Simulated scan of single mutants.
Amino acid sequence: MGGTGRTDDGRGRLGSVLSGLAVAVGCVLFLGGFAWGAVVYKPYTVPTDSMAPAIGTGDRVLAQRLSGEPVRRGDVVVFSDPVWGDMPMVKRVIGVGGDTVACCDKDNRLTLNGTSVEEPYLRSGDGAGSRPFGATVPDGELFLLGDRRRTSVDSRGHLMDAGRGTVPVSKVTARVDAVAWPVGGVLERPQTFADMPGGISEPGPVRTVVTAIAAGVVLILGGAAHGPLSKLVGRRRKARA
Rank of each mutant, 00 (worst) to 15 (best):
S230F: 03
N113Q: 05
G37C: 13
S50T: 10
A239Y: 07
P138I: 00
V17L: 07
G85K: 06
T208K: 11
G199M: 12
A102V: 00
R150N: 15
P205L: 11
L232N: 00
G3I: 14
G199Q: 07
A54Q: 12
A212Q: 03
G157E: 15
A135D: 00
L187Y: 02
T4G: 01
D81Y: 02
L159V: 12
N108C: 04
T211H: 12
G85E: 01
F133L: 03
M51P: 00
G222Y: 05
A178T: 11
T100D: 01
R235Q: 07
G146K: 01
G163Y: 14
V206D: 15
T151A: 10
D105T: 14
K238P: 01
E202A: 14
V76S: 06
V206F: 15
A214C: 08
A22K: 00
A52P: 04
K231I: 03
L221G: 03
R150G: 14
S16L: 07
V206S: 15
G185I: 04
A224D: 12
A102S: 05
D161F: 01
D147A: 09
A38P: 13
V76H: 10
G5L: 09
E118C: 13
R156V: 08
P132M: 04
A128V: 14
G95V: 09
P138Y: 01
L18T: 00
T136A: 00
L142A: 05
A239V: 04
G204H: 07
V186K: 14
R109H: 12
R92F: 01
K91C: 09
H226M: 06
V90G: 03
A35H: 06
V169Y: 04
A180L: 09
G223F: 02
D177V: 09
V183M: 13
M160W: 04
V96P: 03
L122Y: 09
L62V: 07
F34G: 02
L21H: 10
A224F: 07
G184S: 11
V172G: 06
K42W: 13
D107F: 12
P53F: 10
V217A: 08
D81A: 06
A180S: 15
V206T: 15
R175V: 04
F143M: 00
D59R: 11
D139M: 00
V90Q: 09
A35D: 02
I220Q: 07
V117T: 08
G185N: 03
S16M: 03
P203Q: 12
L122S: 01
R207V: 10
V117I: 09
D81E: 04
A128M: 09
R235E: 05
A135G: 05
D154V: 10
H226Y: 12
V153P: 02
A102D: 00
V39H: 10
L112E: 01
T173I: 07
P168Y: 14
T115S: 10
A212L: 11
V96Y: 02
V172I: 07
R123S: 13
V210I: 13
D107A: 07
K238E: 04
M1E: 14
A24H: 15
G223A: 09
P205A: 11
G184Q: 13
R148I: 06
L221F: 07
R65V: 12
W181E: 02
